[in-house]
């Protein structure tokens, strides 16, 4: 038993301060991402979530230039970006995507400049990699209380405004007919999403932050039909991905090429991806069962229909098996992930 534990948790895992901070920040982020992610998926604003990653890149790279903690840069950039997106017009879904895309483009061009300046001032690409892909083991201790405070704010806002946000997400028309300030709620949510994205970017980098926001929520939404359980399930999936990702990354110190850990973000995002694929299985099974049910109905109504029913049933089986095989794919591919080589 202890041998298993020892092989799972490499020596020094629990005593390492870096690991403790990483676990603390990671769990905070996973919890915060759950309600925000669920609302983001319901509101179909994943693109805005992604845009915050790019906007955050500009903010984080700028904060390096002036010697600030990256989280502050992420924060300020995302809040400004959220306001800009809302100001550029998000009333209709279509103009919303356009506004998001335009703000995203502007932010990326700023990021290009700041990252260039970062590189020339330090003569390394280390900070660029940290910003883009995160380095959860190098989070300064001072970030922990800040992340906790921010996470608390985000959680509080989403919990307080859960009902109006949910209703205005389901039907803005009904919400405004009830006198809810739909536009203000939309801005409020966008800012909340920006804060959550900033927190996610600290752990797994700006580029991959969306995965941690959207992935667990999207998986949870496929598994449950209740809003509250969707949030709880999403938090559990997120915590699982982060904690297991951190453990695996710590272990990877002993893996080739050696003496270095693989990027945590790689493990976390791949675990989230696997969770998303697996979350589709129950639905497939249900559909397969419905098919065999209708096959049974076909048998009752006549021999001619029975064969079609059986065909459909086996078809369901085939696709179910295919889905399961695909569900394991990320683990296999993990051995040769391109991100592993990028850790400088």
């Amino acid at each position: 038993m202890s041998a298993v534990l020892a092989s799972l948790f490499a020596s020094g895992f629990f005593s390492s301060e870096a690991v403790q901070i990483a676990l603390g920040v990671g769990v905070i982020v996973a919890i915060v991402a759950a309600p925000v992610g669920v609302l983001t998926v319901i509101r179909r604003q994943s693109f805005a979530g992604h845009a915050f990653g790019d906007i955050g890149t500009a903010g984080a790279s700028a904060s390096f230039l002036v010697g600030l903690t990256p989280l502050w840069g992420l924060l300020l950039a995302n809040l400004a970006g959220g306001a800009a997106m809302e100001g550029a017009g998000v009333e209709r879904a279509r103009s919303r995507d356009i506004a998001t895309g335009i703000v995203l483009g502007a932010a990326l061009s700023l990021a290009a400049l700041f990252l260039y300046l970062d590189m020339t001032s330090t003569s390394t690409t280390g900070q660029t990699v940290t910003i883009l892909f995160g380095s959860i083991f190098a989070i300064p201790t001072s970030t922990l209380p800040l992340a906790g405070g921010l996470g608390g704010v985000v959680l509080l806002v989403t919990l307080i405004f859960a009902r109006p946000l949910l209703l205005s997400s389901v039907s803005p028309e009904i919400a405004s007919a009830k006198g809810l300030p739909v536009r203000a709620l939309s801005l409020l949510f966008l800012l909340t999403l920006g804060l959550a994205a900033a927190l996610a970017a600290v752990t797994i980098g700006t580029i991959l932050s969306t995965a941690l926001l959207i992935g667990p929520a999207a998986s949870a939404l496929r598994l449950t039909k209740r809003p509250l359980s969707a949030v709880l399930l999403s938090a559990l999936i997120g915590i699982f991905a982060i904690v297991v990702g951190i453990v695996l990354a710590y272990d990877s110190y002993r893996w080739p090429p050696g003496d270095r850990t693989w990027p945590v973000s790689f493990f976390v995002v791949m675990l989230v991806f696997a969770a998303y694929l697996l979350s589709g299985v129950p639905d497939l099974v249900r559909r397969r069962r419905q098919d065999s049910w209708s096959a049974a109905g076909g048998a009752r109504s006549g021999a001619g229909q029975r064969s079609t029913g059986d065909d459909r049933s086996t078809g369901g089986q085939r696709s179910g098996a295919g889905q399961r095989a695909r569900g394991h794919e990320p683990h296999h591919r993990g051995g040769a992930g391109p991100l592993g080589e990028m850790e400088a």
Partner: peptide, 9 residues
């Protein structure tokens, strides 16, 4: 009770 705030418990 919209626009009541809080979690839909």
């Amino acid at each position: 009770d919209q626009p009541r705030l809080g979690v839909p418990l």
